[in-house]
């Protein structure tokens, strides 16, 4: 499986990464070399093997439904790039 430039551009778009003219060929090349590496998996038969999602053989813990987090808006917004009236500002959202 080998990616061409349009594949790489589609992936970059899905990942919301801008890519300029010079970068596209570089990323195409390095992604292809990584794909060659990971394609080694295909040679191994995994029929009937249960996928392992997590190394922890444990079950989800449950949290009591009690309010533990009080308003800390000022502290939490101290690093925000753009805030007004307690709202995070972003370019206009069009629905």
């Amino acid at each position: 499986m080998s990616l061409d430039r349009s594949d790489v551009e589609r992936i970059a778009h899905l990942a919301r990464l801008a890519m300029n003219e010079n970068e596209a060929p570089e990323y195409t090349e390095s992604l292809n070399s990584i794909l060659t590496l990971i394609d080694q998996l295909q040679a191994t038969s995994t029929d009937g093997v249960e996928p392992l999602a997590h190394p922890m053989d444990a079950v989800q813990r449950l949290r009591a439904d009690e309010v533990s987090e009080l308003n800390q808006r000022d502290a939490l917004q101290a690093c925000a790039p753009a805030v007004e009236n307690g709202l995070f500002l972003v370019p206009k959202v069009i629905e």
Binding site: I38, L41, T46, V49, E50, P51, L52, A53
Partner: peptide, 13 residues
Amino acid sequence: YYRKAQQIRRMIQ
């Protein structure tokens, strides 16, 4: 890719 790798992960474990 993903599912296959998870299966290999099980085999390695």
